[in-house]
């Protein structure tokens, strides 16, 4: 049972709501319990990966700093959905380092548990 694989999908943009932070915190806790989940950014979630972000209006720790720290906890790469990026007129060059393109259908099929944020 404990060998279950977990996928965290982030589908909301950062700053305007707490979804990104909550998804990342869940992933970090998984890593702390020696079960680092896979993390995938899809839909508006890819906007969390944009470089040059600052602290947000909610006055909370920006998610960008958390994202950059994920690799220390064996949560890497930061997977993103290419179509979501293209739909938003973005290019991988505009994303922070450590991002990698994913096939979302394969990603879901390869994990036992999926958590959405």
């Amino acid at each position: 049972m404990d060998s279950k694989s977990i996928l965290v999908i982030v589908r909301h943009p950062p700053h305007g709501s707490s979804w990104v932070r909550e998804g990342l915190e869940t992933a970090l806790v998984g890593a702390a319990l020696s079960h680092p989940p896979t993390i995938l950014f899809s839909g508006d979630g890819v906007l969390a990966l944009l470089s040059h972000q600052q602290r947000g209006a909610l006055g909370q720790k920006g998610s960008a700093a958390m994202l950059e720290g994920l690799s220390f906890y064996d949560i890497e790469p930061l997977w993103y959905d290419q179509r979501s990026l293209e739909d938003r007129g973005l290019d991988v060059d505009q994303l922070m380092s450590g991002c990698q393109q994913a096939c979302i259908a394969d990603m879901i099929a390869r994990h036992d548990v999926v958590m959405s944020f």
Partner: peptide
Amino acid sequence: TGLGQLMQAALHHDRLITFA
């Protein structure tokens, strides 16, 4: 409780269903 309990539940129970 902490988020660790959510992870434990996801790992130990047969299904996780999210009501968003």
